[in-house]
């Protein structure tokens, strides 16, 4: 079974994503802050990461860059979740290395479809 890491400081969002992805036969690992997310990513080496941009301590953009510059992890697809704030808009303007962006509020089915596209 493919492993998916969900990193978001909003537990409710992690919960709902976990629910639909497990229903679609993926194994989900969850982290509720950037630091745990990065550690978990290196520990379990997931097949795909769903990453929130705005998080305390380490934001999604930094995690994405750290992973994408590391040969060991650079092939892991990253779906970046954004709330389209001005600050995020600026960051997205730069090179984040993310493979895809999902804007809040998103359709759960669409997220599942995108995940399946990368993990086929």
């Amino acid at each position: 079974m493919k492993k998916i890491l969900i990193v978001d400081d909003e537990q409710d969002i992690v919960e709902s994503l976990k629910f639909v992805l497990e229903a679609a036969d993926f194994t989900c690992y969850c982290a509720y802050n950037g630091e745990d997310g990065l550690r978990l990513a290196k520990e379990i080496i997931p097949d795909l990461i769903i990453l929130d941009v705005m998080m305390p301590k380490i934001n999604g953009y930094k995690i994405s860059r750290l992973l994408k510059y590391d040969a060991k992890y650079k092939n892991i697809p990253i779906l970046m979740v954004t709330a389209r704030s001005q600050e995020e808009d600026k960051i997205i303007g730069e090179e984040t290395g993310a493979d895809e962006y999902i804007t809040k509020p998103f359709e759960l089915d669409e997220v599942v479809k995108k995940v399946e596209k990368y993990l086929k």
């Binding site: 409710d12 969002i13 709902s16 629910f19 639909v20 509020p105 359709e107």
Partner: peptide, 18 residues
Amino acid sequence: VSHELRTPLTSIKNSLDI
């Protein structure tokens, strides 16, 4: 405000979807 509104809205929407 829009950022802070979007996040809880996403949770509500996801729950309703499920």
